[in-house]
Design a protein around this nucleic acid. Structure first.
Lengths: 208, 208
DNA sequence: TTTATTTTTGACCAATTGGTTAAACCAAAT
DNA sequence: ATTTGGTTTAACCAATTGGTCAAAAATAAA
């Protein structure tokens, strides 16, 4: 019964990957312990090495998975030829923040590991289908057509990403700042941002 | 010779702190090794424990120092009653980016550690003189006076910080994105941002 | 110089780490 | 029932870790 065997195999493998994912994201590569991953998966530590040969290999496995699902889901929309730049801004901000809200510690994890071992990990990032050429040329086109003010496409994109992602990375800091001004909690603040960020961007680049 | 003693003492202490600073920022708390700090300082490892009792205490010492110098230098300007909101945006972006350029890995370090051990570190952040009330009320005042469009002060501030800081935290990602569009290098890109960010923000909130 | 104090060191320790191994387990095939 | 194959485990290992300590070195006081 190859099928049954494969299912069992994939079963434990998935359980390990899920456990590793949680622990790595929570503690980072250096902070994560193989024993803790084994505990989280309710299996013996040696089994980790049976499926994935080393901590590094296990980490790579989850990192690739995490990057790809994260990149793909957000790039698709932005490269879609079926929306105007304004619509893309609105849709991207809403969708991107919602995506991160489901996994709030993912950006911090990715960015930190990427910085800590760039030579090891940047390759994964580059080869994960990160294509932005259509979006960039679409912006240039709408500028030529006089639909939006002249802006540098790269800066616009980085601004969008920055305003969406940074609050999650800087949550402890943001909470301190916001709570010193109002009683708003972080989740409410991010819900507001789904509205204020597109408004802020579009106000900046729309022609009057 | 109390003076001489104190100088020597402060001398080694400062050498240790400087070494610890470099290693902790480069490797993070979990990744840093006491031996590596000792090597960096060219002293015996036991001497680290002689001056600072534990790795944690040593880390706290440098974290407090780092936070305070970082916060203070940036908050001063923003609370200064002598500038308009527009001027503050221009000055802040220029000064904040320049500050980080001198220490590009500081934001990533601070944000990551803050997320990793919030209960331990957020207190330091809170008690480091982070006051923003004047800036917030100044924005509200200029809105009432019709000088700028209605905006939520907290969102505006977070937007400013996000667009300045995030690129440094996401440098490996940013480089991939930018280089896929132009041949610009990161430093040039950040120099451009000193101009494009204030323009972007002011375009968004100015009245026409 | 001699004594007292402080600073620096090398050697050491217990605990933890990622990783290994040989044996046990367990379902399926003979 | 026995064998066969992959799966899971407990026990173990070498290396590394933060941390200690007693003695040496350097400095100041007498």
């Amino acid at each position: 019964m190859v099928e049954k065997l494969d299912k069992r195999h994939t079963g434990t493998e998935k359980i390990i990957l899920e456990a590793a994912r949680q622990v790595f994201i929570r503690k980072g590569f250096d902070g994560a312990r193989m024993q803790e991953i084994a505990d989280e998966a309710n299996i013996n530590k040696a089994l980790l090495h049976y499926y994935f040969r080393s901590k590094d290999k296990l980490f790579m496995a989850i990192f690739v998975e995490v990057i790809q699902s994260f990149i793909l889901s957000s790039v698709k929309l932005i490269q879609d030829p079926g929306h105007s730049v304004f619509d893309k801004i609105r849709l991207f901000v809403e969708k991107y923040i919602s995506l991160i809200q489901e996994n709030p510690y993912l950006p911090g994890f990715i960015l930190n590991e990427l910085n800590r071992r760039p030579d090891r990990l940047v390759g994964i990032f580059k080869s994960s289908g990160l294509e932005l050429d259509y979006f960039f040329s679409q912006i240039e086109k709408e500028i030529r057509e006089g639909k939006i003010k002249p802006v540098e496409p790269e800066h616009l994109l980085i601004n969008m990403i920055s305003m969406c992602v940074f609050p999650f990375v800087g949550k402890p800091m943001i909470n301190t700042i916001i709570l010193s001004y109002s009683e708003k909690d972080f989740n409410l603040f991010m819900e507001e941002r789904k509205r204020t960020i597109p408004e802020f961007i579009i106000n900046s680049i729309k022609k009057q």
